[in-house]
């Protein structure tokens, strides 16, 4: 049960998108999200759809995995669809009228538009998390935020990135620890599976307290180990794995540029 928790959704395949520089992927994702939202007519939305499908297929991650993510936000999609259905323009032909609520053809069109946009957003964002390890993402954030050092925030950027890396690194460790403590308390007769809400919350105390204490202990140990290795902040630190922009990144940029231009053109001329 606890073992099944995974953080991040990295899915290993040897696709060109996996090889791309995480910084480039991140920036392109932001661009893509903006332009998907800018798609105003059916033509530009179709283009967005093709772009997103292209990325998803190129990632070689099974489409099943993308559907899994969509399923998680299905309630939001349904809610948006339903609400939008009732907000069509009043001049449009009425499809259905229930009490004070009316569904127009325009409303239906809007609902479809809105939900497709959300689906595309989720798929395109998943394509980043599926193809990039959490650590690469952290490195990318650090690198992208590095201009902040010119306004005196150099250490803040590095510290933030380090905190994220450590947090990610310790998730499996803590999961394992939690499992051990749960077993130990179960062996002492703790009942974690039955009882009402209040009883269940109370039953968590014997697990949370030892877990908290051991996290603090680990934090001290890690801090000491880092000091022993002369860690003194980001100053002068080099990396074993340097982020490098390669040919794949140029193709990706080109592909996205074509998409963005397409959206602008479709929005202006149709």
């Amino acid at each position: 049960m606890l073992k099944d928790i995974t953080f991040g959704q990295y899915f290993e395949t040897r696709s060109p998108i996996h090889k791309a520089d995480p910084r480039v992927k991140m920036v392109l994702l932001i661009l893509a999200v903006v332009f998907i939202f800018l798609s105003q007519n059916i033509l530009s939305l179709t283009l967005s759809f093709l772009f997103v499908m292209g990325v998803a297929l190129a990632s070689k991650v099974p489409l099943k995995m993308y559907f899994k993510n969509l399923k998680a936000i299905l309630p939001i999609i349904i809610l948006t669809t339903v609400i939008n259905m009732f907000y069509g323009s009043k001049e449009s032909a009425v499809l259905l009228s229930l009490w004070k609520l009316t569904i127009t053809y325009d409303g239906l069109y809007r609902a479809f538009f809105m939900s497709l946009r959300i689906v595309l957003l989720i798929v395109v964002s998943s394509s980043l998390t599926y193809t990039t390890t959490p650590n690469d993402l952290t490195d990318a954030i650090e690198s992208l935020l590095s201009p902040l050092k010119f306004i005196g925030l150099k250490n803040a950027v590095h510290t933030l990135a380090l905190m994220m890396t450590i947090a990610l690194r310790f998730i499996p460790t803590l999961v394992e620890e939690a499992q051990k403590i749960m077993n130990a308390q179960k062996a002492r007769g703790a009942d974690l599976e039955s009882g009402n809400l209040k009883e269940r919350i109370k039953a968590l105390i014997p697990i949370l307290i030892p877990l908290l204490i051991s996290s603090v202990r680990r934090a001290y140990e890690l801090a000491e180990a880092m000091e022993c290795r002369c860690y003194n902040g980001g100053e002068g630190k080099t990396r074993m794995k340097q982020l490098k922009v390669s040919a794949v990144d140029f193709y990706l940029c080109g592909f996205t540029a074509v998409f963005c231009t397409g959206i602008i053109l479709f929005n202006i001329f149709f």
Binding site: K180, N183, A184, K186, A187, P210
Partner: peptide, 30 residues
């Protein structure tokens, strides 16, 4: 689980109560 007691490795990491007495009493109370 009460017929077969299991003391895990490093059992001191499972202590959580405010006093030693309460911690020892946790199992029998359960």
């Amino acid at each position: 689980r009460s017929a077969v007691g299991l003391v895990f490795q490093y059992p001191e990491y499972q202590l959580f109560e405010e006093t030693v007495y309460d911690d020892i009493a946790f199992g029998p109370k359960n």
